[in-house]
């Protein structure tokens, strides 16, 4: 193992031991993967979206494999913030890994109330405001496509959170930069990108949409170029750290996101196929970083961006 490559990642004032986090929605509420993943090795864990009350989610089938990808329509099933605090938070706190709690709601007030409940709890590094889930009718993505509403909901969480607030962006809009800028104006500490792409598959046997919810969110390697593009644009235009995700399976994929401007990455769908996907990325990063001439993750962040005016002559 190469030890002289610095894997430390900084997201604002949060320091991660390495830049690889579990993506929200793919890693449960904490304990589920404990027999299959060495969780203490992860840079952090973003748990599944938590609402003020329990949500029952969408009818099955909820997943459908697609070429190099996965469609899902879980519908943000969750036990509610109080049950999360009671049943799962003690385990996560004990683990000591950087914990990010994904926050969902139908209304601005619901987001605010989740944030208020979590504000009293220790062991949470940041909240991730989910304004980008494509699988619910109200809330979620509708906030993520409208800069004014995004501002409102992020503001409500920032006012109550008492800790850094990250905002998860939707790729299903041509206003992603405006939404990101609104999140920044509202006090967000970081942006995470991207959530899933809205898609659909048809079950030929049943002559119906394959997913019980009709449409779903596409993830996996199929969406990696979309994620890289959004991270590149957002990180160039908005002066906030960006956590990149979308189809990352290997250290090389992670490096692509770092060069595009991500300060850290999240791995999601890959974990379903290989529970050790995240730890393999972590293990392989030093060699890949060194191979491409970087002594640290930080050096690689934004390496693909064109030089700023005035720097051009130096290159």
């Amino acid at each position: 193992m190469i030890r002289d490559v610095d894997l430390t990642a900084h997201i604002g004032r949060i320091v991660l031991q390495n830049p690889v986090l579990a993506a929200s929605g793919t890693f449960g509420f904490g304990p589920e993967y404990r027999a299959h993943v060495d969780m203490r090795r992860l840079g952090g864990i973003a748990v599944k979206g938590v609402a003020v009350d329990s949500w029952s989610g969408n009818p099955p089938p909820r997943v459908w494999e697609t070429p190099s990808g996965l469609l899902n329509s879980i519908g943000l099933q969750n036990p509610g913030v109080r049950a999360f605090i009671r049943d799962d938070l003690p385990f996560l706190r004990e683990l000591g890994t950087v914990l990010v709690v994904n926050v969902i709601g139908h209304t601005v007030d619901e987001y605010r109330r989740v944030s208020e409940c979590l504000a009293r709890e220790s062991g949470i590094a940041a909240l991730e405001v989910n304004i980008s889930c494509p699988n619910i009718k109200e809330g979620g993505m509708q906030f993520g496509h409208d800069p004014d509403r995004a501002f409102e909901v992020v503001r409500a969480v920032v006012e109550t959170a008492g800790r850094p607030v990250w905002v998860k962006l939707s790729p299903n809009t041509d206003r992603v930069l405006e939404v990101g800028q609104a999140a920044q104006s509202a006090g967000a500490a970081a942006l995470t990108a991207i959530n899933t792409l809205l898609g659909m598959a048809i079950d030929l046997d049943r002559r119906r949409p394959a997913l019980g919810g009709g449409s779903g969110g596409l993830s996996g390697p199929a969406i990696r170029p979309v994620g890289v593009r959004v991270v590149y644009e957002v990180s160039r235009r908005i002066p906030l750290p960006v956590v990149g995700m979308g189809g990352i399976e290997t250290a090389r994929d992670a490096l692509e996101y770092f060069m595009a401007g991500a300060s850290a990455v999240m791995v999601g769908t890959a974990t379903f196929g290989r529970p050790d996907a995240m730890t393999r990325v972590i293990d392989d990063l030093p060699e890949i970083l060194r191979q491409y001439g970087f002594g640290s993750v930080a050096e690689a962040v934004g390496a693909a961006h064109p030089p700023a005016k005035g720097e051009a002559d130096e290159h």
Binding site: G25, T26, F27, G28, E32, Y33, A35, H36, K48, G57, P60, P61, R62, V63, W64, L70, N72, I74, Q77, T271, F272, P275
Partner: peptide, 16 residues
């Protein structure tokens, strides 16, 4: 039987 994701209870895909 149900369409399944993670297999360990994390993704909540294979519900009945």
């Amino acid at each position: 039987e149900q369409r399944m994701g993670c297999g360990v209870g994390a993704c909540l895909a294979c519900v009945v």
